[in-house]
C-alpha cells in the first residue's frame, strides 16, 4: 500500500515554476530512488513533501501530497511540525552541518524521542544507545557523551541517521546521504540504510544522482529531468530496458565493469535553469534521438503495463 502519494505536484518560487506534474508513490518496506542531475528538482520535491518550501520562498501551486491518507499541501504549520521528525524524517546531505557542534551527540538523539515520543531522560538515552548499536556504531555508550567534532564524517552521518530514526518514523527522506563521505564509508552507509528499511518496513525516498547507488539500493526509480518526471519503473526494468533516452544516458555516464576505453560519452550540454526551460520536451536539446514533435509538444507521462514514461519515442526502437 502506498504510504506517500504525490500527484501532479507543481511548485513555484516567485513567478517561476521549477517543478510541474510530479507524480510518484512511496510504499512501506520499499526504497524509492529519486534521480537526476543537479537542477532536476530532486531536493525541491523533498522540501515540498517535508512542508519546508516556505523556507526558500516556494509554494505548492498544483497537485496533492497524500501521506497516510492525510493531505499535506493544505496542512497547517503546527500540525506539520508534529509530523516532521515524528512520522517523516530527513537525512540531509551534509552530516557536518546537521549536528549542533556544542551539544553532545547523545543529547541530540535523545532530544528527538523525548520531544516526539515523550520519553523520560533515561528511557531516551537507552533508546539512543540501542539505535546507535543497531547502526553498528562501536562503543555506543561512550560515544553517547561525545561531541560531534570528535567523530569522523561517516560516524557523524550514522548519528544523523540515528536522529532520523529516534522517533520511529514511517517515511525517511534521504537527500544524497553519502555524497560528502569517502568511498568506503559511503558504501557502508548505503548498506546500513538498506538493511534498516528492510528490517523495519520503512518507506525510504532516496535522493541521489548516482545510478550505481540506485542499482545497488532501490526497488523502484523515479527519473526527474528539469522539474518533470521523465520515467518511472522498477529498478530491474529501468536498467534492463530504459525507455527514456535521458535514463539511458544517465546510466551510460557511470563506467561499467570492463567498459572499453573511449566509450564514456556523457550527456552533451547541461540541465537548463528554470528560466531557460525549453518548449516541448525539456530534454530535447540534449537528446540524440529528438524528432520534430519533441521541440514543440510536451510529452505526457503515460502509464504502461509496468512503469511510466514521458517520451514520444516510446515504441520507436533505438
Amino acid at each position: 500500500m502506498a504510504l506517500l502519494t504525490v500527484t501532479g505536484l507543481g511548485v513555484a518560487i516567485g513567478n517561476v515554476t521549477p517543478l510541474d506534474g510530479i507524480s510518484f508513490e512511496a510504499r512501506k518496506g520499499e526504497i524509492l530512488g529519486l534521480v537526476g542531475e543537479s537542477g532536476s528538482g530532486k531536493s525541491l520535491t523533498a522540501l515540498a513533501v517535508m512542508g519546508l518550501l516556505g523556507r526558500i520562498g516556494g509554494r505548492v501551486t498544483t497537485g496533492s501530497i497524500l501521506f497516510d491518507g492525510q493531505e499535506l499541501t493544505i496542512l497547517a504549520e503546527p500540525a506539520f511540525r508534529r509530523l516532521r521528525g515524528k512520522r517523516i524524517a530527513l537525512i540531509s546531505q551534509n552530516p557536518m552541518t546537521s549536528l549542533d557542534p556544542i551539544v553532545r551527540i547523545g543529547a541530540q538523539i535523545d532530544q528527538v524521542s523525548r520531544l516526539h515520543l515523550g520519553l523520560s531522560k533515561p528511557a531516551a538515552k537507552a533508546r539512543s544507545i540501542d539505535l546507535m548499536q543497531q547502526l553498528r556504531i562501536p562503543d555506543a555508550e561512550t560515544l553517547h557523551g561525545a561531541y560531534p567534532h570528535q567523530l569522523s564524517g561517516g560516524m557523524k552521518q550514522r548519528i544523523v541517521i540515528a536522529m532520523a530514526l529516534a522517533a520511529d518514523p514511517d517515511l525517511i527522506i534521504a537527500d544524497e546521504p553519502t555524497t560528502a563521505l569517502d568511498v568506503t564509508i559511503q558504501a557502508q552507509i548505503i548498506q546500513i540504510i538498506v538493511d534498516l528499511v528492510r528490517d523495519r518496513g520503512l518507506a525510504l525516498l532516496l535522493i541521489t544522482h548516482d545510478m550505481g547507488v540506485v542499482a545497488q539500493a532501490c526497488d523502484r526509480v523515479v527519473v526527474l529531468y528539469a522539474g518533470r518526471v521523465a520515467e518511472m519503473n522498477t529498478t530491474q526494468a529501468i536498467f534492463a530496458a530504459p525507455r527514456h533516452p535521458y535514463t539511458a544516458s544517465l546510466i551510460a555516464c557511470i563506467p561499467a565493469h570492463d567498459q572499453p576505453e573511449g566509450t564514456l560519452l556523457g550527456i552533451p550540454g547541461t540541465v537548463p535553469g528554470v528560466l531557460n526551460y525549453p518548449p516541448g520536451c525539456r530534454f530535447h536539446p540534449r537528446c540524440a534521438r529528438a524528432i520534430d514533435v519533441c521541440h514543440a509538444e510536451v510529452p505526457v507521462l503515460q502509464t504502461l503495463t509496468a512503469g511510466s514514461v514521458a517520451c514520444y519515442l516510446q515504441g520507436v526502437p533505438a
Partner: peptide
C-alpha cells in the same frame, strides 16, 4: 575500495563488507 563501487546494474548488487 573496489567492493565499495556500485555497478550501474542491479544484477551485480554487492554485499558491502563492514570495515
Amino acid at each position: 575500495l573496489m567492493n565499495s563501487h556500485f555497478e550501474p546494474d542491479p544484477a551485480r548488487r554487492k554485499t558491502v563488507q563492514m570495515l
